[in-house]
């Protein structure tokens, strides 16, 4: 028990993803590393376009052409505690299909468009269960369609959808945004995955429903002991959900650490700037909220060296010359900044 708790469920090592477009190559993820422990909620924050979603898609090799994983490892500890590198699996092969939906599930960003509008939601969830039909019985017997339907109704009840027997035959466009997202969560949970990737699951829905969905996810995590990677640009949501936080900027990890350390003792100038720009309940009113100066650079024009240096208030000469590597700055806290360590990321 203690041993498996110490070993990460998922370990992303120096991941690089680039998109070869007509006008040039965009390096969307540029050397990202982090770990996810079993049962942990890992929050990933960053501005839009910082490579959060691409990283998540890369874990399941769901990146569309012309995107490609060019470097790095995605080590996943399977059920029999065998460790495999997801980045090496053929993207359309049976091994990866077994893991997708079965061991790692995805809650996509847009619940509106993530269900097919011409199939009922129940139909699509039953299909997900049947795809992993042999996982359900210890003797390897495949689950029947009727059983799968029963499971789906049970899932609907678990995620708080009222009248599940009727809703299962509804089309996604007949459901409200909140219900749709709950159905999506039900589908993601259908095969009891050990890792759940939630890609901004609450961005597209209103605040009240948002709170309900967050509470639901929290509750489900406790019940099934599922690890969750929670992606958002909303720091408030992170504070509420995550126990460990990764801060990303332009495809690189700037800082990572336990949620309390990140919020109360941020060490990287980017994290500090991000936190300053968040309106506080007890802050002074009628003063302009500090913003991060400058704009996110165009994807074709990545700054050399530390990607944040053109906008950094503490910029130094070496920042534009070399890229700092991610080094410990606290007990479990790491940052990649020359303010704290002179180590250069050579790769």
């Amino acid at each position: 028990m203690s041993q498996s708790a110490a070993a990460p469920l998922l370990s992303v090592r120096n991941l690089r993803v680039s998109f070869a477009l007509d006008d040039g190559v965009v390096r969307a993820v540029d050397g990202t590393s982090f770990d996810v422990m079993p049962g942990q909620v890992l929050g990933i924050v960053g501005e839009s376009g910082c490579g959060k979603s691409v990283t998540m898609k890369a874990i399941l090799q769901l990146i569309d052409r012309p995107g490609r994983i060019t470097h790095g490892e995605i080590l996943f500890r399977r059920e029999g505690s065998e460790v495999i590198d997801l980045a090496r699996l053929p993207p359309r092969g049976p091994a990866l299909r077994e893991i997708r939906g079965g061991e790692i599930a995805l809650i996509p960003q847009e619940p509106m468009a993530s269900f097919s509008p011409v199939h009922t939601v129940g139909d699509q969830i039953v299909e997900a269960i049947l795809l992993h039909a042999h996982r359900w019985h210890a003797d390897g017997r495949r689950i029947s369609r009727r059983e799968a339907r029963e499971i789906t109704i049970g899932l609907f009840r678990d995620v708080g959808i009222s009248m599940p027997e009727q809703r299962i035959d509804a089309y996604s466009w007949q459901l409200s945004g909140g219900l749709r997202q709950r159905a999506m969560i039900a589908m993601a949970l259908s095969c009891r995955p050990r890792l759940l990737i939630a890609d901004e699951p609450t961005t597209a829905i209103d605040v009240t429903t948002q709170a309900q969905v967050l509470a639901l996810l929290h509750d489900l995590k406790d019940r099934y002991n599922t690890a969750i990677i929670f992606i958002t640009h909303d720091l408030g949501v992170i504070a509420q959900m995550a126990s460990y936080v990764v801060v990303m900027y332009l495809g690189r990890v700037m800082e990572q650490g336990p949620v309390d350390d990140i919020f109360h003792a941020p060490r990287h100038p980017y994290t500090q700037a991000l936190l300053r720009s968040m309106p506080g309940l007890h802050g002074r009113t009628r003063v302009p909220l500090p913003v991060i100066t400058g704009a996110l650079p165009h994807p074709f024009n990545r700054p050399l060296g530390c990607p944040f240096h053109p906008r950094c208030p503490d910029v130094m000469a070496q920042c534009s010359a070399a890229t700092p590597s991610l080094e410990p700055v606290g007990v479990e806290q790491l940052a990649s900044c020359f303010l704290h360590s002179d180590k250069v990321d050579a790769s």
């Binding site: 650079p297 165009h298 074709f300 024009n301 700054p303 050399l304 060296g305 053109p310 534009s320």
Partner: peptide
Amino acid sequence: MSAQVDTTGA
């Protein structure tokens, strides 16, 4: 060098 890239891109 980087500044140059920046300006042409911009």
